[in-house]
Design a protein around this nucleic acid. Sequence first.
DNA 1: GACGTCATGTAATCGGTTACATGATTAA
DNA 2: TTAATCATGTAACCGATTACATGACGTC
Lengths: 178, 178
Amino acid sequence: MELSATGRVILGLIATQPRSGYDIKAMVDKSTRFFWAASYGQIYPELKRLAERGLIEGSDESQGERPRTVYSITPAGRDALSAWIGSDEQVHELRDEALLKLFFSGHASRDELVSVLETKREEHLDALEKFSEIEPMAAESEDFGPLMVLRYGKAYSEFGAEWCERALKELNERKDAG
Amino acid sequence: MELSATGRVILGLIATQPRSGYDIKAMVDKSTRFFWAASYGQIYPELKRLAERGLIEGSDESQGERPRTVYSITPAGRDALSAWIGSDEQVHELRDEALLKLFFSGHASRDELVSVLETKREEHLDALEKFSEIEPMAAESEDFGPLMVLRYGKAYSEFGAEWCERALKELNERKDAG
DNA sequence: GACGTCATGTAATCGGTTACATGATTAA
DNA sequence: TTAATCATGTAACCGATTACATGACGTC
């Protein structure tokens, strides 16, 4: 049986250390969210499914009246995780509304086109800033995977921002020329 | 009332010329698919919804017994299209399974890591090739939106492939050093 | 006659988000 | 005492894909 997308994220995250559903959500939000998100509505049901399949194991760590179940990965879970990493299918999807707008820019004014590019550029710059902020933390860990991906995020953001910059410049030159 | 994602693609595509549902699907598959996809299951129902709202208009162009409805955009549809392009929200989502694998690469072997990077690099190179093939066609059109986006696709693919290349090289150097 | 393409559509299913419900613990 | 955070969960909904059903037209 195959691992769902959320199942992969969960297995990967608890492989380093046991975590609760709440912990997993928090981790996703500050790490993988950029290229793979997950919500409570997926996480809690998926935790139960993974436990049923014997890939993870829950242990009760309630404190007083507050419930808390911490899940850890089982040997079968580690097998499933490495089987996934070793598999060669790799989903890659981009949904970029700015590009869709640019695609149809023949039906827009010059100002609108400029605004689309500026918004996209700013979005990339904001992302770049966030990544730069958390880079020192990631650099401390001996696990280099997260740092590698964070650097990808930075490079990607820089690429996007610079591309918009160039496009805006070109647009301006064409205006001056025409 | 807001325009759905599929609604935007449809409006944008028929703004240049009237098309059938089948035509729209074919256009999406060879153009916007890279950053915004659509399937029959969305297109046909959405065409009816847009027609009900008066944003598009269908005209029967059946040939003999073979049915064909060609939709064209209405003035209200053009208004909705330009309102969307002028709006400042812009969804931007990336789902990259390779990055997820790299993120968890602490739980994988060196060979697996290399394989993930190589697969991702190849994927980008394949995309680059496809874009390059269709560029001459896009360059002929007087509508520069599609060409602009195609060039983004090329630049993005180059970025991705080069990043993987660098990562592989680094990995190799570290191996030689250690 | 068979195959590829043109053409429209729906039902089942899936993956995922949002909003809601509930309540304990902790720090200001 | 109040707000923030910790903690678990579900129901409704949405967006989208897949698979299926159906059949005509053109051409080899």
